[in-house]
Nucleic acid binder design. Structure first.
Lengths: 151, 151
DNA sequence: TATTGTTATACTCTATAACTATA
DNA sequence: TATAGTTATAGAGTATAACAATA
C-alpha cells in the first residue's frame, strides 16, 4: 500500500504528540526521581498485583531488569515483594501506601500539566479526539477494569 | 478548574497512545541498536546542522550527555563533527551518507509499523485526527524545555 | 526438565563538576 | 567573565549469561 500524504501527516502528528506527552511524563517523573519505567510500574501496580514475570512481559523488559527496578522502588518504600502462596517460585509485587499516595500525586500533576493542551478543545472535540485515538490505537491487551473513582 | 470525565478520558487516550507509539519507536530503534534519543538525534540532524548546544537545548539534555551520544553515533559512522567557522568554540553536528540512509530506512519502518493502526481510519477521519492533534499539542506545552533564546 | 527470580557483568543514557579553549 | 564542549565520575536502565529454588 502506497502511503499518501494524509497518512504521512497523521503519523507525524502521532509521533510528535507522543514525544510531547512523553516529555511531560519525563519531567514529572524527574521531579520525583522516577524514570518513565518506574512511572509505568507504579501505574500498573496501582490496582494490580502482578508477579515479576507478568510485569516483565507487560513492559517488554527482561526479568533481570525488573529485579533492579523493583529493588530500587522497594528501597524507597514505594513497592514491596511477597512470595506467592500458589507458586513458591513466584514473587508478587505490590504497592505500599506511600507508593499509592505518590502515584495519586503523579496522576494529578499529569492531568494539570496536560490540561492547558486538552483545554484547547471543546467538549465535542475532546470526545471526537478520544474516539479517534481509541480507534487508531486499539490495544490488543485486555485492559483492567478501573473502578469508577469518585473525586 | 475541575476536570470532567471527558478530559480524563482524553488524557488517558493521549498517554496510552504515546506509550504505544514510543513502543514502536523503541522496537524499531532497538533493531538497529539505536536508543530513542539516538533516533531523535538522527531525525533532527537529518535536515539541519545544529551545534551541540542547540541539540542539547532542543532535547532537554545536558551538554555532556550530548558529547557521549554524538561520540557513539560518530564512532558508528552515522554522524560527524565539524568546527563552526563563525565561532571556534562551537561544534556543528552533521549527518553522514550512511546516517541518512539509515534514517530513511527507519522512517519507512516506522510508517510500516504504524500503518495497520492508521489504516483503520478513512481519509476523512485521518484528516480529522491530524487536525485535532495539531490543535491539542500545538504551541507551548507547559513542560517543553525550550531554550530561552528563541520564541 | 522447565520456569521464576536473582546476581554478575557490561554498555548506554543521564547529570554534576571540573577543565580547556574561545568570545 | 561568560559560553561551548569534553572528560571524569557516578547512578539508573537495560540485556545476556550463569545460577538457585521450585514445579
Amino acid at each position: 500500500m502506497v502511503p499518501d500524504d494524509s497518512e504521512e501527516a497523521l503519523i507525524d502528528g502521532l509521533v510528535r504528540s507522543a514525544f510531547q506527552v512523553m516529555g511531560v511524563l519525563t519531567r514529572i517523573g524527574a521531579e520525583h526521581d522516577l524514570s518513565l519505567t518506574q512511572l509505568r510500574v507504579l501505574g500498573i501496580v496501582r490496582d494490580r498485583r502482578p508477579r515479576m514475570s507478568d510485569l516483565a512481559a507487560f513492559l517488554g523488559l527482561d526479568k533481570s531488569t525488573l529485579s533492579g527496578l523493583i529493588d530500587r522502588a522497594e528501597r524507597r518504600g514505594l513497592l514491596a515483594r511477597t512470595t506467592s502462596p500458589d507458586d513458591k517460585r513466584a514473587v508478587v509485587v505490590l504497592i505500599t501506601d506511600a507508593g499509592r499516595d505518590l502515584t495519586q500525586r503523579l496522576y494529578e500533576q499529569m492531568r494539570d500539566a496536560l490540561a492547558p493542551a486538552t483545554g484547547r478543545l471543546g467538549a465535542r472535540q475532546r470526545h471526537e479526539l478520544t474516539e479517534l485515538l481509541e480507534t487508531v490505537l486499539t490495544p490488543p491487551l485486555p485492559s483492567t477494569p478501573r473502578p469508577a473513582t469518585q473525586r
